[in-house]
Design a protein around this nucleic acid. Structure first.
Length: 351
DNA sequence: GACATTTGACCGTA
DNA sequence: TACGGTCAAATGTC
């Protein structure tokens, strides 16, 4: 059973994130006047924002957990969050509140042709179906999925999948909650066996891992990614990363910013559950190949990552635990960002 | 045997 | 009270 990280651990993680953000900002500053490509800058910006976002989330979550009506002292297991184990009405209310606070977003995806199944395309996370319901006015039943790691890691992410009435070849997927589980090990597996994606995700299980192990695995993932990128023929990378996707258009970027930043800011929530397609693939904990084969895109970004003069190898090696986040406003002065570890000596954050 | 899925029942909300 | 969401026993699969 995973326990809430200790004060020292959390503090170290947050300091680490902030420090990385600062280092990346400095790198960006160095490269911004050189011949560095736009994509490289964009990549750096993403990384910087990821670090800060992750650090902030840790702080927010700590505060949430430790608030007077929080579930402090209980296991993160979701069963405890559910009403089952709550005899106490007050706790029920808290959980209700937590549930209503869960961010929610939806998207439409085509059902992968050729699979012969109505299972929606895999989104990289593993889900377990826990129910199905006929919905009034809808031709097709709605299926309910929750994260496979709900028990093991207390991940509260759930999704609802429903075939579109208008176009049965489409499924509407509504996500609720964000993934707080660690699926890096899955990604390691994926990297080791490209294309072996099982949309049902039934067989892949991961054990809860200590932070150090997670960090180590993250490094391995990044390392493997680098190796693959180096060794594979670039002309075939559409095969290598069939579902590797950044939001690249202004529309996508804008929409994800407005959508998810608002969630994040308002709801004190995690990073983990950002819609998979918005997750930067070069990050550690959520290195991600989100879209189904039907969404295959061949990205210039990947190729830029591979450019001989790319600084990204350096970046990747320097960044082992940067999570992902949507792009945000960078209009603050990075020079003024200097994190004194003492700043984190606020007991409320780490009790 | 372990795990996932199915499905009827139950519960909370509007 | 109808409906959506979840639970959990039964069943299926590997």
């Amino acid at each position: 059973m995973e326990r809430v990280a200790g004060i020292g651990e959390k503090k170290a993680l947050i300091i680490n994130e902030l420090t990385q953000g600062k280092e990346l900002a400095n790198q960006l500053k160095t490269h911004i006047d050189t011949t560095t490509t736009y994509e490289t800058c964009e990549f750096l910006v993403e990384k910087i924002l990821s670090s800060y976002e992750k650090a902030l989330s840790m702080l927010n979550w700590s505060a949430l957990l430790e608030s007077p009506h929080s579930l402090a002292g209980t296991s993160p297991r979701s069963e405890n969050y559910d009403s089952l184990d709550f005899k106490d009405q007050e706790h029920k209310q808290v959980f209700k509140k937590r549930k209503t606070m869960l961010p929610r977003w939806s998207e439409q995806m085509p059902i992968c042709s050729g699979t012969g199944s109505e299972v929606p395309p895999g989104d990289g996370y593993s889900w377990r179906k826990y129910g199905q319901k006929d919905i009034l006015g809808c031709k097709f039943p709605r299926a309910y999925y929750r994260c496979t790691h709900r028990n093991a890691q207390g991940c509260l992410a759930v999704k609802q999948v429903q075939k579109s009435d208008e176009d049965p070849s489409l499924v509407e997927i509504t996500y609720r909650g964000r993934h707080t589980c660690i699926q890096a090990s899955r990604m390691t597996t994926k990297l080791a066996s490209f294309g072996d994606q099982d949309s049902k995700g039934s067989k892949d299980r991961y054990q809860p891992q200590p932070e150090a192990e997670i960090s180590r695995q993250s490094q391995e993932v990044v390392s493997q990614l680098g190796e693959c990128l180096k060794t594979e023929d670039l002309d075939t990378n559409g095969e290598i990363f069939p579902s590797f996707s950044f939001p690249s258009t202004p529309f996508e970027t804008e929409s994800l910013e407005s959508h998810f930043f608002s969630h994040s800011a308002k709801e004190d929530d995690f990073l983990g559950g950002f819609p998979p397609q918005f997750i930067s693939p070069a990050t550690s904990e959520s290195i991600y190949f989100p879209l189904p084969p039907c969404h295959m895109t061949k990205l210039g970004m990947v190729q830029n990552l591979l450019s001989p003069d790319s600084v990204l190898t350096e970046i990747v090696s320097a960044t082992t635990s940067v999570a992902n986040s949507p792009t945000g406003d960078l209009s603050f002065s990075l020079d003024q960002v200097d994190f004194d570890p003492k700043f984190l000596d606020i007991p409320e954050f780490f009790l």
